[in-house]
Design a protein around this nucleic acid. Structure first.
Lengths: 161, 161
DNA sequence: GCTCCTACGACCACTCTAGTCCTATAATCA
DNA sequence: TGATTATAGGACTAGAGTGGTCGTAGGAGC
């Protein structure tokens, strides 16, 4: 239950990578990564990721640059971009129940009695997601200093199966 | 995004009604309501609700009584039943990302970098839902006293768009 | 034995998700 | 100018999940 779509997952991963790239590139010029670069890094279908990045660009979270050496980069610095923004841009507005919709419609107008208690859950989730800034999701040790390997990012999948 | 299924909605509404019924019926005998009673009260498809209630009975949240004057009633008192239990019984376990699954599987094993930050979101949501007890969702003033209107619950849809 | 209820498997229409394909357009470089 | 590399976005599709129905079996009370 309550699963995000894969698109939102992909979007978060992409923006996280762009944020890390941003932190490693002090000059504004080289901050762009192409959709294909990001897709390759995570083994995501490139065309699908491209669409997601386009959506994020349309929302103003990313900026796009067409042409050779083009790609996507953050529109703002990664401190001001929250997980909530990204998820909402991709998956649409947050409504935990079928009752609560953009215009307040409900199939069960008048008979639904759980709308009010669950709208608090709504708010809580939004709050939690808003507190997660992209900079918080980046790898802490700044990277370039001591032979930062990409594979180091993979630390917590010690699962079987 | 992050919407519960209608089944979970229905389940919550049903258990809420059963909880209120429980509070109004001091004697254990008359605490059961049939699936049809509840479905009629909320204009929910009766057969669908029946399945939901069966699921909740199988999970131990409700107890069922076949035969005439049968139906469903709470298996425990409404203070000890949480929204989380009900939702999980109906919609399955809580995993916000496609990455986090029951056995830790991930399509993107090794490349997914957002699993760890989002598992905290997972925990937060679980905590919020666990704090909501069914008794908290019941109408406070015992209801029958002063012409209690259902429509009063609908208060927070002042959205445009 | 009749009636009212739960129990449950099978089935179906519909929507959403994830992904592909194709064409158009913009920017850079030789 | 033309080739290349990139974004932009519409059309489409297989498959999964959701919401709901139908039919049948069986338990309980009168």
């Amino acid at each position: 239950m309550l699963r995000l779509t894969k698109k939102a997952d992909y979007g978060l991963m992409a923006v996280k990578l762009l944020a890390e790239h941003w932190l490693r590139q002090p000059d504004e010029a080289n901050r762009a990564l192409s959709a294909k670069d990001i897709a390759d890094a995570y083994h995501i279908p490139p065309q699908l990721l491209a669409k997601i990045l386009q959506t994020l660009a349309r929302t103003g979270i990313l900026v796009s640059h067409a042409g050779i050496y083009g790609g996507y980069s953050l529109a703002r610095n990664p401190e001001s971009i929250t997980a909530f923004e990204i998820i909402r841009a991709i998956d649409g507005p947050l409504f935990i129940t079928s009752c609560i919709t953009v215009n307040g419609n409900c199939d069960l107008v008048g008979t639904c009695t759980i709308k009010e208690p669950l709208s608090k859950v709504n708010d809580s989730i939004r709050e939690v997601l808003t507190k997660i800034r992209m900079i918080d999701m980046c790898e802490p040790p700044v990277g370039t200093a001591h032979g930062h390997e990409k594979t180091e990012l993979v630390t917590l999948d010690t699962h079987s199966h």
